[in-house]
Amino acid sequence: MPRTAPAKTPESEKITINLGFVDLGQIELLVQEGFYSNRSDFIRTAIRNQIERHAETVRQIVVRKSVDLGLRHITRDELATAQAAGQMLEIRALGLVVIAPDITPELARATISGLSILGTLQAPDAVKAALADRIT
């Protein structure tokens, strides 16, 4: 029987931004002159520079708010364990939160009291709907 490769979590998410004509023209000039390979390269570099500039502030906030940083996987076993212990989870994350596809809306609602995500949530649509009033 052939093995199925696990689903790969995307490493990035597409966003759309609006720029003024002058800003866009300056970016195009820098790309034409070879400073950046394309617009996206310029924008990613600018964002990374700003994140680095504020790295210490972000670190302090993450510690103060007890936020998971990076990738947070929520598994069926984790929620089943919480349910058996009569616990509700308050999940705070900066990055990507992935709720496993085998988690039912009922289990999610019975065990997740809140989801505060600065980033992206990947979860089955039914689970997102079940938790809609708990996601901030």
Rank of each mutant, 00 (worst) to 15 (best):
R59Q: 09
M1N: 14
A130I: 14
R72C: 05
E56N: 09
L107K: 08
N38H: 00
T136E: 05
G70P: 11
T4K: 08
K14F: 00
T104E: 05
Q87A: 10
A46K: 06
V58C: 10
F21A: 15
F42Q: 08
I91T: 03
K65S: 02
T9N: 14
I43C: 06
A84Q: 05
L96R: 10
Y36H: 08
G70E: 14
T81A: 04
I27F: 01
I135N: 04
K14D: 11
V98I: 10
Q26Y: 08
P2V: 15
L107Q: 05
P6R: 06
V58Y: 06
G20W: 12
I112R: 01
R3L: 12
V97W: 05
E106I: 14
G20F: 13
L29F: 07
F35M: 13
I103V: 15
F35V: 08
D68R: 14
A129R: 15
A100G: 05
D102M: 04
T57H: 06
Q26V: 11
G25F: 00
E52H: 04
D68Y: 07
N38A: 08
L89G: 03
D125T: 14
L115C: 03
T4S: 00
L19W: 06
Q50H: 10
G34V: 11
E11L: 15
N49C: 11
R3E: 11
A126K: 09
I47W: 04
R134H: 09
T9E: 15
E78R: 05
T81V: 08
F21R: 15
P105Y: 00
L118G: 04
I27H: 05
I135K: 01
L69M: 03
E106L: 15
D77F: 06
I135W: 03
A93V: 02
A130L: 11
R92Q: 06
E52A: 11
P105E: 12
